[in-house]
Design a protein around this nucleic acid. Structure first.
Length: 176
DNA sequence: CATAGGGTTATTG
DNA sequence: CAATAACCCTATG
């Protein structure tokens, strides 16, 4: 049932030998770093890995995926428990741009989607199906409005259809 | 400096 | 409201 989940502590919490084993102490550091290091950071996993001896960036990322997966289970279960607190008091430029705030003049910024948002988007796509942007926004990608989700989806599908189409080239596709 | 990518806004069904 | 098109900005070669 719950074995193999993100929240697992081992009896041998003294020997951090293998990278797949996470002690409770390491988990604490991991979660703290997750808050400290911003999602925008391109070298996020490296910076977090640097704080946990014996762990490679890949290990961090894998552990993170597991965490996200558990969050997905929580969401689908109807339990409304956000992964992290969204500071409603502090409106950073990005948060403001992501929010549904109108802009006096000029065009809105255009904040790129984080990997976390995209993962949640895919999960929402599985859970609600293509087209139900309202629910995907409401439950899966709470940081984006339905319109933004729809826009993201448009580009997403366009992207992979283009990739599929370019599969058909031949002349320069010699197999060595 | 052109253009592909990825985001927002406008239009249509 | 969702689907699609038009538009715009930015990163990249």
């Amino acid at each position: 049932m719950m074995s193999g989940g993100y929240l697992q502590f081992t009896a041998s919490d003294q020997i951090p030998a293998d990278p797949a084993t996470w002690t409770t102490e390491e988990n604490k550091t991991f979660e703290r770093a997750l808050v400290d290091v911003p999602e925008e950071a391109p070298d996020r996993w490296w910076r977090i890995a640097a704080q946990i001896p014996g762990k490679a960036p890949e290990d961090i990322y894998l552990h993170y995926l597991l965490l996200i997966h558990d969050i997905g289970l929580i969401d689908s279960g109807g339990v409304d428990l956000p992964p992290y607190e969204i500071e409603t008091g502090d409106l950073s430029p990005e948060t403001a741009a992501t929010a549904d705030l109108p802009m006096k003049e000029g065009r809105r910024k255009g904040v790129p989607w984080s990997e976390d948002e995209h993962r949640r988007f895919l999960e929402g796509l599985e859970r609600f199906g293509r087209g139900d942007w309202r629910n995907i926004s409401r439950w899966s990608v709470k940081t984006r409005t339905p319109t933004q989700v729809a826009s993201h989806a448009q580009k997403y599908y366009l992207r992979q259809s283009v990739k599929k189409e370019s599969k058909r080239k031949s002349i320069h596709d010699i197999t060595t």
